[in-house]
Amino acid sequence: MKKKILIKDFIETVEDFDLNIKLLAGERGLEKEISVGDINRPGLTLAGFYDFFAPDRLQIFGLGETAYMNKLSHKEKEEKYGRFFSYDIMCCIFTHNETPDPLFVEYCGKRGVPLLVTDRKTSRFISSLVHILDEMFAETVTVHGTLVDVFGIGVLLFGKSGAGKSECALELIERGHRLVADDMVVIKKIEEALLLGSGTPMLRHHMEIRGLGIVNVRDIFGIRSVRNRKRIDLIVLLEEWDSTKEYDRLGLEDKKYTILDMEIPYLIIPVKPGRNIPVLIETASLNQRLKKLGVFSAIEFDRKIRDWIKTENSN
């Protein structure tokens, strides 16, 4: 799914990240769509080298660019800015609170190029920006499930309606773990490396529990019971116990579940009355933490048994 990201959405998100950013000119261009999540330093371009110039990227003007522009005579400015703005420039951002000269501002206004100023240093600003753009342009999917942070492991619970996902999450919250999202989990793939899950803003931290109705987890259990986003480390499918089905008894193989082309460790936990699912999930999370550290309980245990058999045989 291709997402449409407008410059005004981008500015809003940047503001959310507490990067002081101000719009100086070019309001007309706020409805423009950002097509690439990349940035460009236009130093070479201003100096007259236009090969490989990407006007559709966000143009970042640091101290170098502003110092260069300040040294230009009025005539040079007219000529250079004229050429620069003959391209369809997406957006110009000045760092270090440097405001460009009136001619540049005028060009931005005339051509409808949003002109932004931030008080941040260039390299810091760029690193935050890359992070923000990556997230805005990330592939996204919405799934039906419940996401809980259990001992720092993001556990995504799957299961049919009525399988007990919400009840299980409630018990986990009672035990001091945190709810990220219930029922609708928005998953973003960040930098091909991790899946980040969050709730939708509308539902944030509300749950529907059969028999109770809709409850606000944050209001009932307090701020420590919730968090807004969490990396997904483990997927658990809760399903009704089926006596004809073989369940994993050893855990020697690592099963994976694929979301947005990323493979996430996956467990199927059969549910039946009397099974304490939250405890199982806590244990699975701790086991997952061990695996991340390179300790694989089932394989290690198997190795011990084999070693023992070997020594017994040789005696």
Binding site: M1, H144, S161, G162, D183, E208
Partner: peptide, 14 residues
Amino acid sequence: DVEADCKSIMSVLG
């Protein structure tokens, strides 16, 4: 393009 389970109130509201 966002899919919601119609058997879950929260999904529908979301």
